[in-house]
Design a protein around this nucleic acid. Structure first.
Lengths: 117, 117
DNA sequence: GACATCTATATGTTAAAGGCCAATAGTAGC
DNA sequence: GCTACTATTGGCCTTTAACATATAGATGTC
């Protein structure tokens, strides 16, 4: 699961506005996304998505603990998410084809082994 | 589809031993793998897989055209392919979950729009 | 035989992504 | 004051990827 942090963040933020630390914990809780939750990557990605106007942020000094930068999806952000979804659907069908191919040759190999044995 | 060149090469070579140029053309012919067929990446990847004893190569001066370095999967190579397959199956289920989540929130959004509209 | 074309492999350079670790700082409880 | 928890940021280093370029044998053709 590489290069998958962006769509994950966008999907989380599409559900609900949130801040870095909370997003990090959310990623940690998703099986297969644990490795995406590195703080360094996280915050850098968030800033660069904001740069691209995919996200918008504001400081929230209300809650307990230090101030948090709260992110929300922009209209562009929602569009980006849709593009990602289309991309991911394509990827999934490619993976399906790959696995089907593998299974067909794996089948041949085991047939051959049975014949030989 | 990033970082997907290795399993593609391994699967192609599991089907039949082959050389760089042929592998490149095979990748070009697979929808979704066209971008993996850059010669630079190709040959470097092949050499580094050989370094790792996943592949083994020998020069073939027989055919027409310049000599070709023909690669074949080693036992380690077959094992690597199986590891990749397991990995890819996992990735596929993660993608499925992601898409399911997206569809559930997209559904909510359109319901809200209908109620508002 | 000079030239273009196709087949084939290899290298160099640079930019982006990812992994890992450390720094800074506010808040809260003891 | 000390520790623990919450929160954001920055630096460094490696890997991956993208793009361009170099080299060279074989083949066909005029």
């Amino acid at each position: 699961m590489r290069g998958f942090i962006q769509p994950r963040l966008l999907l989380l933020l599409a559900k609900k506005t949130s801040h870095g630390y909370e997003l990090m914990e959310a990623l940690r809780a998703i099986p297969g996304s644990e490795n995406l939750s590195d703080p360094g990557m996280m915050y850098r990605t968030l800033r660069q998505l904001e740069e691209a106007e995919v996200l918008r942020s504001a400081w929230d000094t209300g809650g307990r603990g230090p101030a948090r930068r709260v992110y929300e999806l922009t209209k562009i952000g929602h569009e980006h998410l849709e593009v990602w979804v289309a991309e991911i659907r394509k990827t999934r069908t490619h993976l399906d084809k790959f696995l089907a191919e593998y299974e067909s040759i794996a089948e041949n190999r085991s047939v051959k082994r049975r014949k030989r044995g």
